[in-house]
């Protein structure tokens, strides 16, 4: 009974909405809003007959590469800057400025340097994702508890132990918050960099569909992008829950 109620709560509205969409478009001859049945019908043929390896995987691969690099860079630099108050004071306005630049404008800038290849796209993703991660790490390192710091000093924890046992775990809630922001920026940039200039990839393909007025196919692309966004945020949540399992919440 309880499980049934939970199931209804969880799936009720989504099922209802999809059903509504289905019914509302079932006899649709509106060019922009094809029947959902048609969209669903073309989904498999559109994406799983070659495009999955040709477009989807490269896109996601670039996203993960860029995001991973941004994590390493952001956390590494963030720990360094957060641990050195003078350096932090010097860099703060500069970092604030870089964070405030809407990341997509980096696409044309980085195209100058790196052309339109994979390198450019990864660079764009890195340079967009890195700021929220970096700035949150700096904040997190700064906010590590004073008494805990004293404790670590009293027991003469070495550099390595201080980093691994004190600073990184202490800053991890903030780092996760930054990493989450970074991930949504990363997905945006993955799509944008491909819409701007590319020969393959999800963003490229979806725009191609739009330009050739392959409307049902375009819809499948939008849905696929949505699913990827949802899937990645789910994976992120699982990872975060594991990483922060020590928290009493």
């Amino acid at each position: 009974m309880n499980a049934l109620r939970k199931g209804v709560q969880l799936l009720g509205l989504p099922v209802l909405l999809i059903a509504l969409w289905w019914v509302a478009t079932v006899n649709s001859d509106n060019f922009f809003w094809p029947p959902l049945s048609e969209i669903a019908g073309t989904f498999r043929e559109t994406w799983f007959t070659g495009r999955f390896t040709a477009d989807v995987l490269p896109s996601v691969g670039r996203l993960l590469a860029g995001y991973g690099l941004a994590l390493v860079l952001g956390v590494g630099l963030g720990v360094a800057i957060g641990s050195l108050p003078v350096l932090r004071a010097v860099l703060e306005p500069v970092l604030e400025f870089f964070r405030a630049i809407p990341p997509p404008v980096l696409v044309p800038v980085l195209m100058l340097f790196a052309g339109i290849g994979t390198t450019m796209k990864i660079l764009v993703i890195v340079s967009g994702c890195v700021w929220p991660i970096l700035l949150n790490t700096v904040e997190g390192v700064r906010a590590v508890d004073e008494v805990l710091r004293d404790t670590a000093r009293c027991y003469r924890l070495g550099r390595r132990a201080r980093l691994l046992r004190l600073v990184l775990p202490g800053a991890s809630p903030q780092i996760c918050a930054g990493a989450r922001q970074g991930l949504s920026v990363g997905i945006i940039l993955m799509v944008i960099s491909e819409m701007f200039a590319a020969g393959n990839g999800l963003g490229f393909t979806v725009v191609q569909f739009q330009r050739t007025f392959a409307v049902p196919q375009m819809w499948t692309g939008i849905i696929l992008l949505g699913l990827i966004g949802v899937l990645l945020s789910l994976i992120f949540r699982v990872a975060e829950a594991r990483l922060l399992s020590w928290r009493n919440e």
Binding site: T151, R165, P169, W246
Partner: peptide
């Protein structure tokens, strides 16, 4: 501050 001198993640 016992609550703050123990490493909560350990």
């Amino acid at each position: 501050e016992y609550g703050r001198s123990l490493f909560p993640w350990l």
